[in-house]
């Protein structure tokens, strides 16, 4: 091989790699998204108090038997406002809607839900964010679809979009209910 061709070949290879990545990003891939290790795994063990219901607890075992859509939210989270109307659309679509109130203070979440509307069937409180860590949450909002066996099947990092709901989440919930 002629030596003078080497820089040329390196350049072409790099150009192809960069172009390929740019196309992927253009198609909607998020480069700084961290792939979840939780998909395909049983939901972590938790035991959380239920919001507005004194003494009631919500356990991992409660996930069995029905498809669940778990949404980590917080009253202080701006992006949660953005996705909230989509959550309202998810009610009655074949999944139990679980809200996990992530690191909120006092009754902030109660007020927030009064103001924004309450799409959830159950709301559990994760005051210290430990359940979030067990789920691999690194920023709210994050959402998970859990099947009837309690296995995590899907994770959405960041706010839901109409497209995600229509093309990924609703079809998945439908399939898991079969």
């Amino acid at each position: 091989m002629r030596i003078s061709l080497v820089p040329m070949i390196i350049f072409v290879v790099l150009a192809v790699i960069f172009a390929w990545r740019l196309v992927l990003v253009n198609q909607g891939e998020v480069p700084n998204l961290i792939p979840s290790t939780m998909i395909g795994r049983v939901a972590p063990v938790f035991d959380m108090p239920v919001l507005r219901k004194n003494g009631a607890q919500f356990f991992t075992a409660d996930l069995r038997g029905k498809v669940h859509f778990i949404n980590f939210f917080a009253s202080w989270c701006v992006a949660c406002r953005q996705e909230h109307s989509l959550l309202l659309q998810l009610t009655g679509q074949g999944a139990v809607l679980v809200g996990i109130d992530y690191k909120d203070a006092g009754q902030d979440a109660v007020q927030w839900l009064v103001q924004m509307g309450d799409p959830y069937d159950v709301i559990a409180v994760d005051r210290r964010g430990r359940v979030g860590i067990d789920f691999g949450v690194y920023g709210v909002p994050e959402s998970y679809v859990v099947d009837r066996q309690g296995v995590i099947r899907f994770k959405q990092t960041g706010p839901l979009t109409v497209e995600d709901v229509q093309t990924k989440i609703l079809p998945l919930i439908k399939e898991l209910n079969k």
Partner: peptide
């Protein structure tokens, strides 16, 4: 930690 957040 790697169990929850991956090797990342």
């Amino acid at each position: 930690l790697a169990d929850r957040y991956g090797d990342y």
